[in-house]
């Protein structure tokens, strides 16, 4: 049996693509990738290093209509006879995986964080406060893997690239414009994140967050009140009502650690908390804590990272 992996390669091949190919390879020997391009053979063929045997490219699709993409993936499922379809649980997967689930009558698990254990797959529930083990009862299954949950592993295989015509059909959604978020590392994919809360007192002070982020190559984030009052853009808001992230390192400065904030960051591998208040609840969820003033500690940390980088 084959496993089909959908990869969004619009912005090139990112780490998430290697993660899902690695995941798929652990499920089945025969890993086939479907993508809608662009047809950049040299970067696509890198997926072969992680175990992809075949890459199907449908170059006919250009818009943003989840229904068209669902039809394309549906025809790829049919022609490859795949029994499992794997996505990276990103914004595109959130539009097509549920559609495909109904189209194929295949059970869908969103946000898998581990390789299946027997027939059960682990996911986060209650905003990361617990785990659930889900079983799929249908013949075909769809698994959408939470970014940053699986370590990409090399597993060289001969990989061929083929054109594929998946009959996208008509569209009813017109793309008017796209607005890319400038330059920075997209938060959901970032491995390192520096985040600020109300303790930073105002937007004019964010340079100390940005300097550290820049030195680390990290993305920036914030607590909800900070984005609500407009100190920072909405897309930086993490937590229960913002986005949930699970970077390797989350540095929180001037954030109290309210339960709703923790809900979005408690999947982080390592948490560093900088707060003047030794009683701040965030320390209970932290790996490393500094009781101190963010205005002094952050610049010092930036300097220290600079020194570390110079000597390594």
């Amino acid at each position: 049996m084959a496993v089909l992996v959908y990869i969004n390669s619009e912005n090139g091949i990112t780490k998430n693509a290697y993660e899902v190919v690695t995941y798929a390879k652990k499920l089945e020997e025969q890993v086939i990738v479907i993508t809608t391009g662009p047809k950049d053979e040299s970067s696509l063929s890198k997926l072969g290093e992680y175990g992809a045997k075949k890459i199907l490219i449908d170059s006919s699709f250009s818009g943003k209509d989840s229904q068209q993409l669902t039809r394309i993936i549906g025809s790829a499922v049919e022609s490859t006879n795949a029994n499992t379809i794997v996505f990276s649980h990103d914004t595109v997967a959130k539009t097509i995986a549920p559609r495909l689930s109904v189209k194929l009558k295949a059970g869908l698990i969103s946000g898998a964080i581990e390789i299946p254990n027997g027939d059960k797959i682990k996911v986060n529930v209650f905003s990361g406060k617990a785990f659930g083990n889900v079983k799929i009862y249908s013949e075909k299954r769809i698994i959408s893997v939470l970014p940053n949950s699986i370590q990409p592993e090399k597993n060289q295989s001969n990989c061929i690239i083929e054109d594929f015509n998946g009959s996208a059909g008509d569209t009813r959604i017109k793309l008017i414009d796209t607005k890319k978020i400038e330059g920075d590392i997209p938060l959901p994919e970032a491995e390192l994140v520096v985040s600020g809360g109300r303790g930073l007192k105002g937007p004019e002070n964010w340079n100390i967050i940005e300097d550290l982020a820049k030195e680390l190559g990290a993305a920036t984030a914030c607590s909800r009140p900070v984005s609500d009052i407009g100190w920072r853009p909405h897309n930086e808001h993490v937590g229960q009502t913002g986005i949930a992230i699970r970077p390797n390192l989350y540095i929180a400065a001037g954030i109290s650690g309210a339960i709703q904030h923790l809900a979005g960051v408690n999947g982080s591998k390592t948490i560093v908390v900088i707060n003047t208040d030794s009683e701040a609840p965030f320390f209970k969820a932290a790996d490393y804590g500094i009781i101190g003033d963010a205005f002094e500690v952050l610049p010092r940390l930036t300097e220290s990272i600079k020194k570390f980088k110079a000597s390594n």
């Binding site: 914004t91 959604i173 793309l175």
Partner: peptide
């Protein structure tokens, strides 16, 4: 959208 915002008409 991945890495940004898209404006759509439907």
């Amino acid at each position: 959208d991945i890495g940004g915002i898209q404006v759509l008409e439907v």
